[in-house]
Design a protein around this nucleic acid. Sequence first.
DNA 1: CAATTGAGTTGCCTCAAGGAACTCACTCGG
DNA 2: CCGAGTGAGTTCCTTGAGGCAACTCAATTG
Lengths: 152, 152
Amino acid sequence: MQRTRFGDMACSIARTLDVIGEPWSPLILRDVYVGITRFDALQQDLGISRKVLAERLKWLVEKGVLARQQYSSRPPRHEYTLTTKGEELCDLLLVMVRWGDRWTAGEAGPPALHRHHACGEFSHVELHCSVCGQPMHATDIDVVPGPGAAAG
Amino acid sequence: MQRTRFGDMACSIARTLDVIGEPWSPLILRDVYVGITRFDALQQDLGISRKVLAERLKWLVEKGVLARQQYSSRPPRHEYTLTTKGEELCDLLLVMVRWGDRWTAGEAGPPALHRHHACGEFSHVELHCSVCGQPMHATDIDVVPGPGAAAG
DNA sequence: CAATTGAGTTGCCTCAAGGAACTCACTCGG
DNA sequence: CCGAGTGAGTTCCTTGAGGCAACTCAATTG
């Protein structure tokens, strides 16, 4: 965890980073997304320190991205699942995968493939405009201050 | 910088995080994207420590996301600009903005708006399938091992 | 020649990350 | 009933990254 907190900045990027910007958090999200939901399983899959894992899980639950649920009462056992807020964060992971596949995969090719339910094909995500439906990239837009911009 | 490096993992998310996963890096990228390209300007805008800023810039240049260019020879002055690789990373920022706007903006509304050049409207990004063009979210896909998956 | 600006670098200090061991509650096999 | 096993953390110690401030160096402006 960095000392400077991003949560108070008037920037949606900074505020998103406040939630999942710390090391390991996106990988925890990925694991929960693919079905690794128990503490020990996460710890072994990631090779993360148990202490840091406990901290991150607590944080992500507090932020409403994950939910901690008891799936057995005797013995008490828990698992972590995605909330709606968390599922929508996974979109971010898809975009990371796309960039990582393009720029870091190298000769061996992408480590994972995505099959889209709607068409059944292996594909990747593309960004489109919510209004006109055309492709939309960082170079295709102007950024202007919005209502929540800091005064001054 | 976390001690555990993500760059060697067989996962495009981890490898993307290796490039921009460290604290501040996405915000540096955002600033360069919106035209804050000089060292001191970045330092003042972000409130980041000069030491960490120097480290991050060096890392991002090494990774080919930013380019360090001289825009004046006498006196020698430099600025940082986005490479193609860096511009494509900005797509990630757009998705962060979208999530942050939805889940963290609150009453005040989003701090920034995006106007799409193609249609001239204020809009946000949506994820679509590269094959069928239909919406594509984390809940709409199956993840299966690809050619670059680690053996074992 | 002094002050200013851009772009870093150096040094010190604190707190977070890594690692390993320990706890606690419960279950299962003999 | 006893010991081993499992899930889910917690505690302790060491190292190193992040914050802060001061310093450097080169060139420019007054």
